[in-house]
Design a binder for these strands. Structure first.
Ligand code: FES
Ligand code: FES
Lengths: 163, 163
DNA sequence: ATAAATCTGATTGTTTTAGTCAAGTATTTT
DNA sequence: AAAATACTTGACTAAAACAATCAGATTTAT
């Protein structure tokens, strides 16, 4: 699994837009930068991914900035993390040189797989709107049943190196 | 959060001891190395932490090796991860230079905190024994209530750098 | 025109991770 | 006693991932 500053900052930025974007006015990266203490350059880099992921819409030129591409209630943390990070990964197989046995699954495969689903269910259950509404108790969420997880927990695509 | 090869290999190694250690005979690192495709040197490094964490007992000399220090049912994945990795961390505050506002908590603090607890509840609910028994459905676990989590989700202790 | 913004590609420095190496100690077997 | 087995320890290195920056280009409101 990978939760880095990129993921954190991504969520912070999206939350910021939702909290401070008023009446059809887009939010500038400069404003986000000041409020969230994230450098402008870094935000620019982040918003490439967020835009590519379809989470924000941009308006260029003076008076421009960013909107959320859809209502905050329909943007999940999982969406953001996946937009800025590479896909969540918890199992190591497929491209493993050591540790995971090629062909047959190792004894811990199901553990990591279950863990990935567990984490994903959380990230998928929390929307940006919920983060903004302080009333929601994030510690007692209704999670989707495991069956409904569209195996969004993907493996990382990487070329296995042969030594 | 941090789940690295070290954590994976740590769990694999402990599981291996439980699966292959028979009748009072300790398991050698060489054996684990062969079965789990982990280099001996790396295992040596890993078992420092596992031993320091009180998860395994060692016997030196020929015929020596490692035992589990307590029954597999009483060793959780959380125990292993915490023994080999540094403590799990999901919030970024305390030592953050950017992103997280010093003094007041940032808008996403509760999110990351809840996420940390969510992950920990899983790691804490799964024992090595459960991983070995293939019948257990890791996707539908009984998790401890959040109140019982002894805030084992700790922050990383690190000196904040001043630039 | 000018300025305010987003956009884009590339690059850099730092930290973390993964893995190795060499030397040492305890214990059993021969 | 010697040799072999296996854990123990400290230090070290290479490679990858991460965080962050920079320079320049493009769009558009005024
Ligand atoms: S995680 Fe080891 S085989 Fe999938
Ligand atoms: S995570 Fe931002 S203040 Fe704690």
């Amino acid at each position: 699994m990978r939760l880095t500053s990129k993921g954190r900052y991504g969520v912070s930025a999206i939350v910021d837009i939702n909290n401070h974007g008023k009446e059809g006015k887009p939010v500038t990266l400069a404003a986000i930068s000041e409020r969230q203490f994230i450098s402008l350059s870094y935000l620019e880099q982040l918003f490439r991914s967020l835009r590519a992921g379809g989470l924000v819409r941009s308006v260029r030129g003076p008076g421009g900035g960013y909107f959320l591409a859809r209502p905050a209630s329909e943007i999940t943390i999982a969406n953001v993390i996946q937009a800025v990070n590479e896909p969540i990964r918890t199992t190591l197989c497929e491209n493993a040189v050591r540790g995971c046995h090629r062909g047959k699954r190792c004894d811990t495969h199901e553990l990591w797989d279950a863990m990935g689903k567990h984490i994903y269910r959380f990230l998928d259950a929390v929307s940006i709107e919920m983060v903004c509404q302080k009333e929601v108790d994030l510690n007692n969420l209704e999670l989707k049943p495991v069956e409904d997880i569209v195996t969004e927990v993907r493996m990382e695509q990487k070329i296995a190196k042969v030594s």
